[in-house]
């Protein structure tokens, strides 16, 4: 009974915050509402016993997306638009309600027995050497998805960088931030970053056998890097530096190298020889963690805005 009450409370809050995000006239308020929405969804995922997804939603869906939205909110002028006529709003609302009703019908009339691949995952999990079934799916059964996903992350950064103004090409990402060593933010950074880095690495490591994983851990590492950059403790590296570019590409390169090696060694692309599955997966995960953390941090920083050599 208490469980159902808690679920009702969470679902009411999620829907309430979503409505607020859509209805409010203030863009900044909408962004704050969206961050709250991400955190409430995290609770929903935890209630659905999907702890890996909850961690991802908290770190990426709410956290990093929120930071990047706040970056945009301080730069963009609020858009004032005429209110759509009430008739159009009601019509759109009704059509959207029809779509919601259709989806609700699918939820309320499930097929029996429910489709599931849980048994197949259980029977093949041992051959990966992993204990966390979701890590097993991501790194073995759907490894091609995960590989392409890491390429998408990199492509998003290429896309963002390609929007650099010509004069700033080769500069440091983002708006210049003065270096600082005193004040609340540098102090906060010094206290939090060592703890955050340990937690980030732990989440990557424990992801093999328990909820966690490279994306969630890498996001925490990226957050610590972003904090260090925002506090003025370190500068973002110039985007032309080849060591940086190698770091960004290392994850996908290692992944595709292991994948190609799987053709002669295990019979197909992205297959692992059974005896080496765990060490190979670990190798890919370490390389991916570094690449994803660096890419996420640079995505949040944004494209360079000042010419190389003209920083503060």
């Amino acid at each position: 009974m208490l469980d159902l009450a808690l679920d009702l409370l969470i679902t009411a809050l999620v829907i309430g915050v979503a409505l607020w995000t859509i209805r409010t006239r203030d863009d900044f308020a909408a962004i704050v509402g969206f961050v709250a929405y991400g955190l409430l969804l995290t609770l929903a995922w935890a209630r659905l016993a999907a702890y890996d997804v909850a961690l991802t939603e908290a770190a990426i869906g709410g956290g990093v997306t929120g930071v990047i939205l706040l970056r945009a909110s301080v730069r963009l002028k609020p858009v004032t638009t005429a209110r759509t006529p009430i008739g159009v709003r009601v019509l759109v609302g009704l059509l959207c309600a029809v779509i919601s009703a259709g989806l609700a019908a699918v939820v309320l009339l499930p097929v029996s027995p429910p489709p599931s691949l849980a048994a197949d995952v259980r029977s093949h999990l041992a051959s990966t050497g992993l204990g966390n079934p979701i890590a097993g799916v991501l790194m073995a059964y759907r490894a091609l998805d995960t590989f392409l996903e890491t390429v998408v992350v990199l492509l998003a950064l290429f896309g963002a960088w390609s929007l650099t103004p010509d004069r700033a090409w080769g500069g440091r990402p983002g708006a210049p931030i003065p270096t600082a060593s005193f004040g609340p933010l540098p102090l906060f950074g010094r206290l939090l970053i060592p703890i955050g880095v340990v937690i980030g690495i732990y989440i990557v490591w424990v992801g093999a056998d328990a909820p966690g994983g490279k994306f969630q851990g890498a996001t925490i590492l990226a957050a610590m890097w972003i904090l260090a950059m925002m506090a003025g403790l370190t500068e973002a590296p110039p985007i032309g530096r080849w060591r940086l570019r190698l770091l960004l590409a290392a994850g996908p390169i290692v992944f595709v190298a292991v994948g190609v090696a799987g053709i002669p060694l295990a019979g197909s692309f992205l297959a692992y020889p059974e005896a080496l599955a765990k060490p190979l997966i670990l190798l890919i995960e370490v390389a991916l963690t570094l690449s994803i953390a660096a890419t996420l941090g640079l995505l949040v920083a944004g494209p360079p805005e000042t010419a190389p050599g003209t920083e503060l």
């Binding site: 659905l48 016993a49 999907a50 890996d52 997804v53 991802t56 599931s116 691949l117 849980a118 995952v121 079934p133 979701i134 097993g136 799916v137 991501l138 059964y141 759907r142 998805d145 995960t146 996903e149 994983g213 994306f215």
Partner: peptide
Amino acid sequence: GDPVPQALVIT
């Protein structure tokens, strides 16, 4: 839970 849809959501 079925790990396959969960992994799809993470992606």
